[in-house]
Design a protein around this nucleic acid. Sequence first.
DNA 1: CTCGTAGTACGGTGAGTATCGTACGAAGCA
DNA 2: TGCTTCGTACGATACTCACCGTACTACGAG
Lengths: 116, 116
Amino acid sequence: MTTATSSRELAHPERDEIRLEAVLHALSDPMRLQVVRELAEAQGELSCSYFDLPVTKSTTTHHFRVLRESGVIRQVYRGTAKMNGLRREDLAALFPGLLDSVLDAAARQERRLTGS
Amino acid sequence: MTTATSSRELAHPERDEIRLEAVLHALSDPMRLQVVRELAEAQGELSCSYFDLPVTKSTTTHHFRVLRESGVIRQVYRGTAKMNGLRREDLAALFPGLLDSVLDAAARQERRLTGS
DNA sequence: CTCGTAGTACGGTGAGTATCGTACGAAGCA
DNA sequence: TGCTTCGTACGATACTCACCGTACTACGAG
């Protein structure tokens, strides 16, 4: 059934199961916010191992799971890799403008704190 | 100095000390999000006791402190009451559109879940 | 000065979570 | 059939946090 990129299936919330509080909580962690920003820039899917986070593999797995279970990203297995993509359409339908303003806010803050 | 509504002064982060992650974390709690929504509707200052939260006074104090220390609200003493107001200007300057899209998202979610 | 109201401070509890290390599983390659 | 890479599962730890109750302070009214 479905599309079958692989055997292993991952549990994702349906669009109407996504909760604002969970999304905000997922984005309130600096490491996860950074992941989301890079996914937004990449305009496509990135594997978990693409990200060079300053934590161990198990902690990385944990953060990606929080993002997936809150409905922020979609994860699929592709061979040994696990690809991650932003759920832009679902988020835009539920919370128009929210993701973009968070991404913009993060970019502004980074410019403010590090850049000139 | 300053304006002197009372003796007791409360510590607030300066505008440039406000962090996006802290704001998102503050807003990710259902009770605090509800408080912020009511403050936004009220278009002014509301006392802590205006809110009839389903928790004790000490927990209420805790939530208002999280909102204040994250930079979402400003609190001043007025007699025995403590008035709360959204820091709209500061938030709009730092993160344009963020507060509005969160408020809009919260309203949409409420309509989706409870209303028709 | 006394009393009531509004809110704080403090200590504690239980749940969640960010982190790690080690051991394991799944897919691809030689 | 191994070996390697990518990621998971599980257990442990330390920290944060939402919540409570009790005792307390600050202000205003009588």
